[in-house]
Design a protein around this nucleic acid. Structure first.
Length: 467
RNA sequence: GGCGCCGUAGCCAAGUGGUAAGGCGGAGGUCUGCAAAACCUCUAUUCAGCGGUUCGAACCCGCUCGGCGCCUCCA
């Protein structure tokens, strides 16, 4: 079986075939950098990361571009409120975005283009759209004329004739020929303050949707492979991108449209007023470890609303501890001669793993395959069938699975500052055990337990970890 | 008004026509000086409810109940 993806454009799960054999081009709508991104944003970025990792695992050469929206109403407002430049204001949140995404193991994209660094490309696109009669200018602003694009509304399955015009459409943009038309270029206004670009279109700034059209076309070309984003972007954002790009290229913007469902927090839509609004940093401060955040945000299929529960931390810790324990078990296994059995289980579980991801990124089922592998490997350890060569093969398999999941990567390998002290307490306990002084040995263990240290007596060695 | 989604064990969550994955939790057992970890067994005769189609339905169809999304701020 090969990869199949649900394509929002066709509303079907389709076999995936890239534009250029062996190479995949993907574009993800990134954050608007006016505040620290929240975990809902990261859930979407995590889905892109998962897809990108799986494509790489499957042998594709992946080119992933993720934009940074550094010009819009909110960034202008924020910068002007602080009296600093747009650049200075947005740099701050671009940094926090990268800090947080690295924390939860989202690998580097190939490029993070900024909207403000592509003004000429956007202006050129508007000019081309005007030339093609898809756009018009009124009072210094340019608008896309949706009547000129017959399939407008298709991506979201909206019938433009039946829209309840007027109920949700802002009424202040009366200069548009049709209220449904959307802005390509916005004329400079007083509130914009120092923000604005002098261009052939006049002084102003780009509309929100334009950057993605201009930048995806520039860096990934016509008809690139996969465009990703959250479901809320289907309309109007992605529909408008399609109209803009295709109005110029007359070719499909992207071959597959992949949208991730929203994250719920404690069963409800995340909002500051409900007190369930979190950033990655908030969770770290509440004691979550990076990989626990990653696990929690990724649980559940990407097209299903996933409920992130603050109370689920213990369950997540336990699940991840299973992976870790398996690696430790393999490391300390002193057996031999289970190579054929190990190879059998690897073949079976890895097939299950691939089948799961191939089926529209069925992450929960892939996880099940890995947990089954963990159980099989633990059983082989127990049966003393894991020797040096088996250990190496099993660990290599774990690392291969983890190249997609990204949990082991996030283990903090840094030396524990108290390790010398802990080791000496363990040493003292083992001395007591040797002389069968059990009460003294238990006292030593209790002292460690009180400090949050869990110890495990393995064959010939005592290993420890923090709770 | 239009388009669409969800309801599976105590909790989380796959499965979408062939007889309920996986994780957490819980019970019992093996191992261990005792633990921890691991392993084994058990933990949904049943998939919101009611009808229908079918040899066969959690999966298809209809209705009902309950939660929710989108329809120019939004990951």
């Amino acid at each position: 079986m090969a990869l199949k993806l649900y394509n929002t454009l066709t509303r079907k799960v389709e076999p995936f075939a890239p534009r250029d054999p062996g190479k995949v081009t993907m574009y993800t709508c990134g954050p608007t950098v006016y505040a620290r991104a929240h975990i809902g944003n990261f859930r979407t970025f995590l889905v892109s990361d998962l897809l990108r990792r799986y494509l790489a695992y499957s042998g594709y050469d992946v080119n992933w571009v993720m934009n940074l929206t550094d010009i819009d109403d909110k960034t202008i407002k924020g910068a002007n409120a602080e009296g600093i430049s747009l650049r200075e204001f947005t740099d701050r949140f671009i940094k926090s975005f990268h800090d947080d995404r690295k924390t939860i193991g989202i690998l580097d994209a190939n490029l993070y283009p900024r909207a403000t660094e592509h003004i000429p490309e956007m202006v050129k696109m508007v000019e081309d759209l005007i030339e093609a009669k898809h756009a018009y200018v009124t009072d210094g602003s340019a608008y896309f004329k949706i009547d000129s694009f017959p399939t407008y509304g298709q991506l979201a399955r909206l019938n433009m004739e039946e829209l309840r015009v007027g109920e949700r459409v802002a009424s202040d943009e009366y200069e548009k020929e049709d209220v449904r038309d959307f802005a390509l270029w916005k004329n400079w206004e007083e509130v914009d303050g120092p923000v604005g670009w002098e261009t052939s279109l006049g002084k102003g700034r780009p509309g929100w949707h334009l950057e993605c059209s201009a930048m995806s076309l520039k860096y990934l070309g016509k008809g690139f492979d996969i465009h990703l984003g959250g479901v809320d972007l289907i309309f109007p954002h992605h529909q408008n991108e399609i109209a803009q790009t295709e109005g110029v290229t007359h070719e499909p913007l992207a071959r597959y449209w992949v949208h991730s469902e929203h994250l719920l927090v404690d069963g409800q839509k995340m909002s500051k007023s409900l007190g369930n609004f979190y950033t990655v940093t908030d969770l770290i401060e509440k004691g979550w470890k990076p990989r626990e955040i990653r696990y929690g945000l990724l649980s559940g299929h990407y097209r299903q609303r996933t409920n992130f529960q603050a109370s689920g931390l213990d369950s997540i810790k336990q699940a991840l501890a299973r992976f870790e324990a398996c690696a430790v078990n393999l490391e300390h296994s002193a057996g031999q001669g289970g190579m054929s059995e190990l190879k059998d289980t690897i073949a079976q579980r890895e097939q299950e793993f691939r089948d799961a991801f191939d089926d529209d990124l069925n992450y929960p089922e892939a996880l099940a395959a890995i947990f089954n592998f963990v159980r099989d490997a633990n059983t082989l350890c127990q049966d003393k069938k894991i020797g040096k060569p088996e250990q190496e093969l099993a660990m290599e398999t774990m690392r291969r699975f983890d190249s997609v999941l990204g949990y082991l990567d996030l283990q903090q390998e840094t030396a524990d500052p108290e390790s010398a002290e802990i080791e000496s307490l363990i040493e003292a306990r083992n001395e007591a055990r040797k002389s069968k002084n059990w009460s003294e040995a238990d006292r030593a263990r209790d002292a460690l337990t009180e400090r949050g240290i869990i110890i495990e007596d393995r064959a010939g060695k005592t290993v420890w970890r923090r709770k």
